[in-house]
């Protein structure tokens, strides 16, 4: 049998020029029973490499690991449960704030209204009576305005008459003066 190929692979192996697949070929070759004498010295090395894969962990490890992960997930779930609660509270807080602001505004508005009502006795009257009284007040105010306005008009008219009178007197004066002359 020609071992040229294996010898070439072996030379490449020492130089780190073999691919992972070629190295697997070497391991397979040296795991055989029938190895030529001149290559036998390398057999323990490749047999040792192949033997490494025999170190494994049993299924008992899987079960132990899964138990550990289950406990971890449970504690994680507890944490995330609290997290969800915190998230809900965080989302609801603005609503509480808004409700508090509305309540405050209502209270302030109510107090302000009561104070206004205290100052204005009309506010204590209700319905048509209140409206009637308000109308009376408005009419009275209009009257006062009208009165003021008419008084000022009379005063203006009087002052105008005076002005006119004085003007006519002025114009007559030169004539009289001429008559005197």
């Amino acid at each position: 049998m020609n071992y040229k190929y294996i010898e070439q692979l072996l030379s490449k192996y020492w130089e780190c020029k073999t691919s992972a697949e070629e190295e697997q070929i070497l391991r397979s070759f040296f795991s055989q029973d029938d190895i030529p004498d001149h290559l036998r010295q390398y057999a323990p090395l490749f047999r040792l490499q192949a033997d490494e894969s025999r170190f494994t962990l049993g299924t008992d490890f899987d079960q132990r690991m899964l138990d550990v992960i289950r406990r971890e997930d449970l504690s994680g779930a507890r944490t995330s449960g609290l997290g969800v609660l915190r998230l809900i509270v965080r989302q609801i807080t603005p609503l509480f704030k808004a409700a508090a602001v509305v309540a405050l505004l209502l209270t302030v508005g109510n107090v302000a209204e009561k104070m206004t009502v205290g100052q204005d006795s009309v506010g204590q009257r209700s319905g048509a009576e209140g409206a009637y009284v308000r109308q009376e007040n408005i009419s009275a105010q209009i009257k006062i305005i009208d009165q003021t306005h008419s008084e000022s008009s009379i005063a203006k008219a009087d002052s105008l008459k005076e002005t006119t009178k004085s003007t006519s007197v002025g114009t007559e004066q030169p004539a009289s003066k001429e008559v005197i002359r």
Binding site: M65, L66, I69
Partner: peptide, 18 residues
Amino acid sequence: DFRTDILPLKDQLFRLAL
């Protein structure tokens, strides 16, 4: 997934750790 992605690595991890 723990069972399909992490647990199957156990042997190669074990050999490296060893």
